[in-house]
Design a binder for these strands. Structure first.
Length: 545
RNA sequence: GCCCCCAUAGCUCAGGGGAUAGAGCAAAGGUUUCCUAAACCUUGUGUCGCAGGUUCGAAUCCUGCUGGGGGCGCCA
């Protein structure tokens, strides 16, 4: 099923031979779509733009789709879709099991690496963003037919486990019973201990060696820490409505056995060299090298990322690698991707993308932190929102606030603003959906079981709504291509606005005959798009509010 | 020192080289014998950080500045 603008593009292309750069019209009086191609062709053709536009329109065959094309301003070609074409688009959407989401012709395996909390630490606002954004991308990519492999790259390895295990043994704590908050407190205690007690520090270092060499007691405690942490993460995901499960866990330790192979590859190809005692990779254009293996023989986290790329490409067959990680890691990922290319771990037909997101700021515009200066936990943030609204609405508020702005920018966490049902918020979209659910419920109660087809689109409000509905598939495709969920948010907000105008101006249940059937079908289609669109954002579409 | 990101209405933010730069919030006023008023409508607001350049046309692309944030060899 081709989208209407792509059909129109083809028709114009057939006349002019170049991409017509069809765009949605900027204003209602300019029709539905516009092309500026005449303006650009005017110079090379040596004729006034309006004359070029006139000759294009003369040869353009779009009578089956549009009203008569109009030439406006300096030479814009404005196209207005016929009402029956819009009606058919909505009816197609209603008949489509995917509700207008175009299934990709080239399904591929896509890895989405997101959330990535640290073992024995509570999740913070940064993990919230990664979880929400990554989950949205996962849902969108899955919806268009890709095979998505979610990877939760938890921090489950490193020198901090020497401290943790040693402190647990000192305290006689049962690691299997720790909550995340308790584990974090234990870590803070261990860290203070490490700096104040030289003997403890020495034992902690030795404990890291025990862990790395597979000492059973050490490994057992380490595993208990992971298990209790994972339980804590899962509780947070369940509360957030995030899809991650234990199946998606692929922590740093997973790659331990791969690291020698990675190093062997890098050394064999001559990509890595020894410098100041460390094994490093220099890449042109980067002012500092990647540290693969530290002077002390330990591996840096870049090595783990290389191993992950290698595995995801070789074993999973991934063609697209997506990393949902904060913007401060941009340099790191640029370097890792460049090294992976150089080493051949990333073949030319595989793309790797860092979806870099900004910080969450407090109401004062400063870095979001508690009075004590520590990072705000995910749990306390959810609690704060649920003080203002019921859980599903509070969650919608948070997720929408996170997804509706450009990802790379910092955003201000303002609970009072995001739970409003007026304005560009998650609850506003939920409310639009609930109203449609109500209309359809009432219709059903009155004995009209199945809404019919859209057949009458006389009112401008009806046409605007139908036009927006016809664009749903294009918007989802844009998110797939750009990994920018705020485009979908903006679309759903526009749709809700058009729905409100329709709702005010076009009575549904009080109308009769074909008009009533047609409007009911519009309601149903809008409800479907809102429901599936919200689901792509990870937001629950409520039937009642 | 080098690199990356950001700068648009009082505030929070959209803006794909194209028409008079748009939403929401806030402010003021209005709309319920009518499908959810948790809504809708109306009204005002701009040196698009600054200066050049490319172009028929620049908030958008290029260069240089200014201001803010972040990063840059042995934490992850």
């Amino acid at each position: 099923m081709s989208s209407l603008p792509s059909l129109l593009s083809e028709r114009i292309h057939a006349v002019v031979g170049v991409d017509p750069e069809l765009r949605p019209a900027t204003k209602p009086q300019f029709g539905h779509y516009q092309s500026n191609v005449a303006l650009r062709l005017a110079k090379s053709e040596g004729r006034p733009p309006r004359a070029v536009a006139a000759s294009i329109v003369e040869r353009l065959e779009v009578g089956d789709l549009c009203e008569t094309p109009e030439i406006a301003g300096p030479g814009f070609i404005n196209l207005r879709l016929r009402a029956d074409v819009l009606a058919r688009a909505v009816n197609d959407l209603l008949a489509d099991p995917h509700s207008g989401i175009v299934q990709t012709g080239r399904p591929e395996t896509v890895v989405v690496d997101y959330s990535s909390p640290n073992v024995a630490k509570q999740m913070h606002v940064g993990h919230l963003r990664s979880s929400i954004i990554g989950d949205c991308l996962r849902r969108v990519l899955t919806a268009v037919g890709h095979r998505v492999v979610a990877q939760n790259h938890i921090g489950d390895w490193g020198t901090q486990f020497g401290l943790l295990v040693e402190q647990i043994l000192d305290d006689g704590t049962d690691a299997a019973t720790l909550t995340l908050a308790e584990a974090e407190a234990l870590y803070l205690r261990a860290n203070a201990h490490f700096h104040s007690d030289a003997a403890f520090a020495e034992r902690a270092r030795a404990r890291v060696v025990s862990l790395q060499s597979g000492d059973p007691e050490t490994l057992s405690i380490w595993q208990q820490l992971i298990d209790t942490s994972a339980a804590g993460f899962n509780a947070a995901y369940a509360r957030l409505g995030v899809l991650l499960t234990d199946e998606d866990l692929a922590g740093e330790s997973v790659y331990n056995d791969d690291l020698p192979g990675v190093v062997a590859d890098l050394e064999a190809s001559g990509v890595a060299v020894v410098d100041a005692g460390a094994l490093v990779v220099f890449v042109e254009g980067f002012n500092s090298p990647m540290i693969v293996r530290k002077r002390d023989g330990g591996f840096g986290y870049a090595a783990t990322d290389l191993a992950a790329i290698r595995r995801r490409v070789r074993e999973f067959g991934a063609k697209r690698l997506i990393y949902v990680v904060g913007a401060p890691q941009s340099f790191h990922f640029d370097l890792v991707f460049a090294v992976a290319r150089k080493a051949g771990f990333l073949p030319p037909d595989v793309v790797a993308e860092h979806v870099a997101f900004g910080q969450v700021l407090g109401a004062d515009g400063k870095k979001f932190s508690t009075r004590e200066g520590t990072a705000v936990t995910l749990t306390s943030l959810l609690d704060a929102a649920e003080e203002k609204a019921s859980a599903p609405i509070a969650l919608a508020a948070i997720k929408y606030a996170d997804l509706s702005n450009g990802l790379n920018k910092d955003y201000v966490f303002d609970v009072d603003r995001m739970v409003q049902t007026t304005g560009n918020t998650g609850p506003y979209l939920q409310y639009a959906h609930a109203r449609m659910a109500q209309v359809l419920r009432k219709s059903e109660a009155e004995g009209n079981a199945a809404p019919g087809d859209v057949s009458v689109l006389d009112e401008p409000a009806e046409q605007t709504l139908a036009l927006l509905l016809s664009r749903y598939g294009e918007i989802v495709d844009e998110v797939v291509a750009t990994l920018q969920p705020h485009r979908l948010c903006a679309y759903l907000y526009d749709l809700s606005g058009a729905l409100s105008v329709f709702y005010e101006q076009c009575p549904v249940l009080k109308s009769a005959g074909a008009v009533r059937e047609s409007r009911l079908a519009l309601c149903l289609a809008t409800k479907r798009v809102l429901a599936t669109g919200l689901d792509l954002l990870g937001i629950e579409a409520l039937d009642r509010m």
